Each structure stands twice: as C-alpha cells, then as structure tokens.
Computed example of a mutant assay.
Amino acid sequence: MTSNGSAGDSNNKTEQFVALFAEHRDELFRFILALLPHRADAEDVFQRTSVVLWRKFGDFQPGTNFYYWAARVAQLEVRDYCKVRGREKLVFWTQELVELIADTRHEQQEALVRRRAVLKDCIKGLKPQDRELVELRYSSHTTSKALAESLGKPSVTVYKALARIRRWLFECVERKLAPDQRG
C-alpha cells in the first residue's frame, strides 16, 4: 500500500475516534465521576483515560459498543488511580467498591440515557424564564446563592424557583416514562 493509503487510513482512524469519543464523552465523564468521590480526581482520570483510549483505539473492534469499551478502560484507569492514591493517604475506596459501582452503573446505563433524553425534552417544555434559570444554574456549575447574587435577587427567591422547577421536571420525567415502566 502506498504512503497515501496509510495516511488515508490514519485520517479515517482519527475521524472515527473523534466521532465516537465526542458522542460518548459526557457519558464517559459521568461514569468516571460516579466512581470517584471528587470532581478534580474524576477530571484527572478522564484526561488520562482520553489519552489511553486514543493510544489503544486500534484494539477497539468496530461494530461493538464504544461506550462499554471506553468505560472498561476508564474503570482500569480509576483502579490504577486509586492504587496510587491509596499509597499517598488513607483512602476508603477499594477495588471491590469501584467494580460494584461500575457494574451498577453499566446495568443502569440504558435507563439513564433514556431518562436524560426525556429530561431534555421536559426542559424544552419549561417557560422561557424557568429554562433560562435552569441553564444559568447548571451550565456554569454555579451555586444557587451565587446565581441569586448575579441576578440581583434574594437567595430564597432563587431557591424556591429552582425547587418548583425541579419538582415540575421530576413529575414531567416520571409522567413521560410511566408508559415505558408499565410495559
């Protein structure tokens, strides 16, 4: 094969990886975050996992589930991270606990994806000012108190509005999922 063919294969491999990784990036990060108690640790492991996934992408079998392959790699990275952290200081995070959480997360994966899709649909049904409040609160990972300050509103007003919106969203999701849960 010519060097142009190899470059084409390499570009195709890169494009495949980027497309699959972009599609599953957020879910993979949430998986790691479920396994580690601190966001900073999860971000560190996510970065390490991203590099390992790229390096090992040649091992990925096209046509299989990229997310489950990536999650297994992430689980191994979490295990290694916990081993190192265990030597640094007292850590109650054991390999058995990581595996139990990972198994539970895998079992619930489809339901979580379905709930997230329904939630997005319910968010679209909010009044514009309620949707904006939710987006401001959660897109920037700001606290409700900081949000209230930035809006120039009393904290209690923002807390009550968010509680009302969360309750409505919860009921919306439950209502839309109810037919699926009966069958």
Rank of each mutant, 00 (worst) to 15 (best):
S139Q: 11
K124R: 15
F31P: 03
S50F: 01
R48T: 15
L112D: 12
F31C: 06
A42G: 02
L177S: 05
R116M: 15
T14D: 00
R55G: 12
D130W: 06
K145D: 09
P179V: 06
Q61K: 14
W69V: 15
G152T: 08
V51M: 13
V158S: 00
A40R: 15
D121Q: 08
V98H: 03
L133G: 01
T142C: 12
N12C: 14
R39E: 09
G8L: 13
L33F: 11
N11Q: 07
T143M: 06
R182P: 00
F60W: 05
S144D: 13
V45G: 03
Q109G: 00
V156G: 03
V134P: 05
E110W: 06
S3M: 15
V18A: 06
Q75I: 08
E132H: 14
F31V: 02
N12G: 10
L76C: 12
T64F: 11
P62Q: 06
F92H: 05
A117K: 12
V173D: 07
Q129Y: 00
C82W: 03
D59W: 06
T94L: 05
K153G: 13
P128L: 08
Q95M: 08
A163P: 01
D9R: 14
L76W: 02
R72I: 15
N12E: 14
V113T: 12
H38T: 07
L76G: 06
Q129S: 06
E99M: 07
R30L: 13
D44Q: 07
R114W: 06
V156C: 05
R72E: 15
V52R: 02
R72N: 15
P62T: 07
T2H: 06
Y67D: 10
V84P: 01
A7G: 09
I165M: 01
G8S: 11
R175F: 14
A34T: 12
Y81R: 05
L28G: 01
F92A: 10
L28F: 05
Y159W: 12
R167F: 04
F92Y: 07
V173L: 02
K56R: 01
V18M: 04
S139C: 03
K120L: 03
R131P: 05
P128Y: 06
A146Q: 13
F29Y: 10
L97V: 08
H24M: 08
K176Q: 08
A117H: 11
K120A: 07
F170W: 04
L20E: 01
K160G: 01
K83R: 13
G86C: 05
A70P: 08
V51Y: 07
P154K: 14
Q61Y: 09
V156E: 04
E171M: 10
E107T: 04
W69R: 08
G86V: 04
V51N: 13
P62M: 06
P154R: 11
Y138V: 03
D130S: 05
C82D: 08
W69A: 11
Q61E: 15
E15L: 11
